[in-house]
């Protein structure tokens, strides 16, 4: 549904994207993960035709955004960076105005989008009195008119409180489940991406360092934290020490056997704690390992 090929972009000599390619399948929720400045928003900007790439191309449903922007964007809704509204107008007026740039959208469709995001009771209030959460919901509502095949959500939970994050997450999942929407979302919040996304792409300093499922990111290795009196003994046994007090064993290896060898070598093993790899650990490993 969404495909980007070898995107490159520099801003005033600073490399923002360096040969980034990935594909989002129809109907999946795909996460674009990376720290601030990793190139997530630049990728979104290129996908929406708001940023011109130095090289490469972006496609939506097989249509090139760079060559046929209007036709390509006809099938997507989007939130790009911090949503800006005409604060002196009502939420409803904002929706009408933004929707008109996509064509004639029936009133019923606008009302449906408002209902989906739960703003029915407040949609005729001026946007200037909206909370941050309500503004984000309005941003999602405008992305849903006219009902798209895919939505591009750039940091959709940015600045929301925990309840707001939960509601937004539920909404995105509901839209994906009930309407089959393809979702591409960017975030620097690992937990959010882990809970929402089927697959992820991880960007670091403009480079793609991983694309795939979380399980693929975790790999097959198993990690344990050891409370050991003498780590030189572990070195001597050629154990793979991946962090202070943490070893990684190949899949299938038995930790009991490792402990026995350590004890035989004269080490005192005071405790063994299996570590389930957290997303944070995996992410940090990946980002720090990248050149």
């Amino acid at each position: 549904m969404i495909r980007i090929e070898n995107l490159r972009k520099t801003f005033r000599g600073r490399l923002a994207l360096d040969g980034v390619s990935f594909e989002v399948q129809r109907g999946e929720i795909f996460g674009l993960l990376g720290h601030n400045g990793a190139g997530k928003s630049t990728t979104f900007g290129i996908l929406l035709g708001q940023v011109y790439p130095d090289g490469g191309e972006a496609f939506i449903d097989g249509i090139s955004v760079q060559r046929e922007r209007a036709r390509a964007l006809a099938k997507v809704g989007a939130i790009f960076e911090t949503p800006g509204f005409f604060d002196y107008m009502s939420g409803w007026s904002n929706l009408e105005i933004l929707a008109a740039y996509s064509g004639h959208v029936p009133r019923a469709e606008l009302e449906e989008a408002v209902r989906i995001v739960g703003l029915t009771g407040r949609i005729h209030d001026p946007v200037r009195v909206y909370s941050h959460g309500m503004r984000q919901r309005l941003a999602l509502a405008q992305a849903l008119v006219p009902m798209p095949q895919a939505v591009l959500l750039d940091e959709p939970t940015e600045g929301l409180d925990p309840e707001g994050i939960h509601e937004m997450r539920e909404l995105i999942q509901q839209l994906n489940r009930e309407r089959g929407l393809t979702v591409l979302l960017s975030s620097h919040l690992l937990a959010e991406v882990q809970q929402l996304c089927d697959r992820v792409a991880i960007l670091n300093q403009g480079k793609l360092v991983f694309t795939g499922r979380w399980s693929e990111l975790a790999g097959d290795g198993q990690r344990f934290r050891l409370d050991l009196d003498d780590w030189a003994k572990a070195d001597a046994l050629a154990l793979r020490i991946v962090a202070p007090q943490v070893i990684e064993l190949p899949a299938g290896d038995d930790i009991g056997e490792v402990v026995r060898r350590l004890v035989t070598a004269g080490a005192t093993v005071r405790a063994v704690e299996p570590l389930r790899p957290t997303l944070e650990n995996l992410y940090l490993d990946l980002v720090h390992r990248a050149p």
């Binding site: 708001q50 949503p83 996509s102």
Partner: peptide, 16 residues
């Protein structure tokens, strides 16, 4: 509109 971010919202739309 560029300053307020509303133009970014508009340019997410299929309008040239």
């Amino acid at each position: 509109e560029v300053e307020d971010g509303t133009l970014r919202m508009t340019l997410c739309r299929p309008i040239s």
